[in-house]
Design a protein around this nucleic acid. Structure first.
Lengths: 122, 122, 122, 122
DNA sequence: GTGGTCTAGACCACA
DNA sequence: GTGGTCTAGACCACG
């Protein structure tokens, strides 16, 4: 699991990190129970501030993606059926609208989504 | 075409407006050539500032969703096959990962996407 | 001499008209003494407001490109060595800087300028 | 890098600032990677509003001249061959036509352009 | 009456 | 301390 950052992006660094962890879990690169790097380690190796890493970890914890284990530090949470947040659905609605307005048919859009989902299964 | 804002959301107002216009175009509630409310009118009826509306309009213009005719104000741009931006794909990858980690199967995810796309066709 | 307008441009219509007349004179499509269409005629055939045409004509007159002849209406002024305005030089400096920053060498920039100048001699 | 504004000019302040930055980059007074003054600092020292500076910076960012690094603020973008915009060429055509109508020969015009380009190389 | 520009403040998210 | 966002006004260019 490698993390990388685009310092010019308009997405905050802590959110970029959070997104990479979520994608990593989906792709199976991060397995339930697997230990995440310590805040200090991750901050040092990627050149970002410890507070930024901390903020990302806190968010991920709150969203249920990771949890703090007393013995082994921060680990990936066991998979469990979670609720789909309203924000996720709303974000999806916006992005799918963008694709639709760009001229993609329903079939084409579903093909894109299937491809992206399967990327997640790799 | 009605607009509404969530003043508690962490999504900036101008982006909320931009998103509603994009969704409106996808849903056919805003037709190509149709005139959008003037900046002042929209600002007044929705209780947000003129410059905030202006910012949203400028973003939409830059993205090719609308254009301002020097004679007739701001109108919805004619539909044309556009390029899919890298950001759209990246955002989609993140959201689909969230769904996947929440335990949704490929089939279920595609069902959600189809439903949302068809909402756009209404 | 045909005029055409881009109603979506950020250049005002009266300035677009003014520019087309200047280019037309440079290209020899408008000869000294040649009569320009009346304000009303030009406005009607091109679908813009009479006030807009009037504003362009007034600007062109003030800049010495055209003059009002008592007998024949508005005509192209006789060519004469004019002063180069400070704004022209400043505008040129900005545009040449843009080309330079885009990576064009002095030779390439001069080639572009020569080509554009010779277009004017057609 | 000093900035100065002509408050009587009909060129908007944000555009005057944008132009000065472009010229500064061309002249090598602003080097790739060099940090630009913060929005607040520039606004204060030049007596214009923060939002006006912000608007100029956003335009420059969009045009690829500068970029904002989430850690180190706003810096000059690394030079790279860019595309020449259609507007630049059109603007050049207008200005060269003005020179031509003023009576400058091709040789004289190219001399002017060479001089201005080399000013940029200083 | 339209959009564009600008001001002088304020608050917040980010790092 | 940085840029991003927002407000409530104002003035102007354009058509």
């Amino acid at each position: 699991m490698l993390v990388s950052f685009d310092f010019q992006s308009d997405i905050p660094l802590y959110m970029q990190l959070r997104n990479q962890v979520v994608i990593g879990i989906a792709q199976g690169k991060l397995l339930p129970g697997e230990q995440l790097p310590t805040i200090r380690a991750l901050a040092e190796e990627s050149g970002i501030n410890m507070m930024t890493v901390s903020k990302a970890y806190q968010l991920l914890k709150q969203e249920g993606y990771i949890l703090t284990d007393r013995r082994s530090g921060t680990v990936v949470a066991p998979r469990q059926k979670g609720v789909i947040s309203e924000e996720t659905i709303h974000g999806l609605r916006v992005l799918l609208s963008e694709l639709q307005v760009s001229g993609l048919s329903e079939k084409e859009v579903l093909t894109v989504c299937r491809k992206l989902y399967q990327e997640g299964t790799k």
